[in-house]
């Protein structure tokens, strides 16, 4: 379970996140959508403990991020917005490094690395420096690293960017499987179609405020006769 309550974050008098509250329940996939600069990445950074909110609380499976940050961070799997990380390491070194940081036992990590490497087609690249990877390959390595400790809470910042169709398909399936096991997934995307098909709930954010939080059915009921794209443009005032 992931819950954010009354969170505000200001940068140089600009409110990037404004009194934001929502909850991602266990067993749910929640899509986080909004225009560029709406505050999605800032919110995700607050949820993962990277940024400290001016006010409000973040709760991850019962752990308050301000009071028990290490416990909260241990159960989060986070994919950052850029996959250009530790490029001097080889893929296998990077995965082992992250597995060590999250204290994943040897036999468990071997099994998981094999699973991810097979599903994402990474096997032949694992012994190469990540600097030689394409953008998509780096993103796959990031996804594998974020999930290698099998965290119950997934926070994924635009995880599908750069992935080839097969890997994107695999990741979407993995999200479904993860949620089906009673865990929660929050992911941001600009591809409305993906959010519409994959998510149990949608959060639409604009200028740091949530302008909608609910199921697709609830959203469609509010705007009869419009598809998701039209609704999004209508709500964010970009039409």
């Amino acid at each position: 379970m992931l819950e954010i309550s009354g969170v505000t974050k200001t940068f140089n008098d600009l409110k990037a996140v404004d009194d934001l509250s929502f909850k991602v329940n266990d067993g749910e996939i929640v899509g986080f959508v909004g225009p560029n600069g709406a505050g999605k990445t800032t919110t995700m950074k607050i949820l993962t403990g990277i940024l400290k909110p001016d006010c409000g609380t973040v709760n991850v499976n019962g752990f308050d991020m301000a009071k028990s940050p290490l416990e909260a961070k241990e159960i989060i799997g986070y994919i950052a917005d850029s996959p250009d990380m530790f490029l001097r390491l080889k893929g296998i070194e990077f995965l082992n490094f992250i597995a060590d940081i999250y204290k994943v036992p040897t036999d468990v990590r071997r099994e998981r690395i094999e699973t991810f490497a097979t599903r994402f087609g990474l096997i032949d690249a694992l012994d190469l420096p990540m600097q030689s990877y394409s953008h998509g390959m780096r993103q796959k390595a990031m996804v594998a690293a974020a999930l290698v400790h099998n965290p119950p809470v997934w926070i994924l910042d635009e995880p599908l960017i750069g992935l080839d169709p097969k890997s994107a398909y695999e990741l979407k399936n993995m999200m479904r499987e993860h949620a089906a096991k009673g865990n929660c997934v929050l992911f941001s995307t600009h591809v409305l179609e993906v959010a519409e098909k994959l998510c149990d709930k949608i959060i639409i954010i604009n200028h740091g405020k949530d302008i909608f939080y609910g199921t697709m059915d609830e959203l469609s009921a509010k705007y009869p006769g419009l598809d998701f794209e039209q609704i999004f443009l209508e709500m964010t005032g970009e039409k």
């Binding site: 296998i92 995965l95 082992n96 490094f97 597995a99 060590d100 940081i101 204290k103 994943v104 036992p105 040897t106 990590r109 071997r110 690395i113 094999e114 490497a117 096997i123 032949d124 690249a125 694992l126 012994d127 190469l128």
Partner: peptide
């Protein structure tokens, strides 16, 4: 590149400090 099984053999847990 080394074989996948060779990579797996080298994948051994260590402490966060050492890692």
């Amino acid at each position: 590149a080394r074989s996948f099984s060779a990579l797996m053999e080298k994948s051994i847990q260590t402490t966060p400090f050492k890692a």
